[in-house]
């Protein structure tokens, strides 16, 4: 991923698209280049999978972690942390935001939207997976995209192609998704900022796809 990142990188998408994994990986990657990196978990929708599960990894790497104080606790309620204002207040910190799934998840972002737009140093990336049942067609994917934009009030600036079949993903699986991703890009008039692939597929795919981003898969809550 050669491109310079903006200060705030927002990851949204259909639930199960792989947002959390990508957000965690990007935070770790950027920490190698910068002093101050934070990751914020705004996912108030699905308490089963969240970036809190990667807490040890953040501590190890010196990445600030912003999440609901109640996450994974006895009161796992849709609460947002007061620390979430750090996303817009601490302007010297590179911040990756893991937005909740679908339009409902993105609603939580709305509180920060005016400040994010005012600072205007953000990227809002839609994570897509053409192998997920409700985003299988480019048209359905763009529909989900518009719903998220409506809820968050922030227009997307790019796409992340994370098309995969879980454990059965091969290099061919990713190559087969390029036409789909290209069509989503055409329909939405947004660039594919990067294509994320499991790290062991990187060598097989390099040279065949521009802007590959390798993923080290994080273990979920299970």
């Amino acid at each position: 991923m050669p491109m310079e990142r903006k200060r705030i990188v927002l990851f949204s998408g259909h639930y199960g698209s792989g947002k959390t994994n990508i957000a965690v990986n990007l935070a770790v990657e950027e920490k190698k280049k910068r002093e101050k990196v934070a990751i914020a978990d705004l996912d108030i929708v699905n308490p089963y999978f969240r970036s809190k599960d990667s807490m040890a990894l953040f501590e190890e790497n010196g990445i600030d972690f912003i999440c609901s104080p109640y996450a994974n606790s006895n009161v796992d309620i849709p609460a947002l942390p007061q620390e979430m204002y750090a996303i817009v207040d601490k302007k010297d910190v590179f911040t990756v935001v893991d937005v909740g799934g679908d339009d409902r998840g993105a609603l939580a972002l709305g509180r920060l939207t005016p400040a994010i737009l005012e600072e205007n140093n953000y990227e809002s990336l839609m994570v897509i997976n053409g192998y997920r049942p409700l985003t299988r067609t480019p048209e359905d994917t763009v529909e989900v995209m518009r719903e998220i934009e409506m809820a968050s009030g922030i227009p997307f600036t790019g796409l992340v192609n994370n098309s995969n079949l879980g454990g059965e993903t091969t290099a061919q699986t990713v190559l087969d998704s390029l036409a789909y991703a290209g069509e989503v890009s055409k329909l939405s008039n947004l660039p594919i900022v990067f294509t994320s692939v499991r790290e062991d597929l990187l060598s097989e795919l390099s040279g065949k796809i521009d802007n590959l981003f390798p993923l080290v898969l994080q273990k979920g809550a299970l």
């Binding site: 192998y131 409700l134 087969d176």
Partner: peptide, 11 residues
């Protein structure tokens, strides 16, 4: 693309 889809058990 493959005939398979990546699904949650609930889906």
């Amino acid at each position: 693309m493959a005939d398979k889809v990546l699904m949650k058990g609930n889906e």
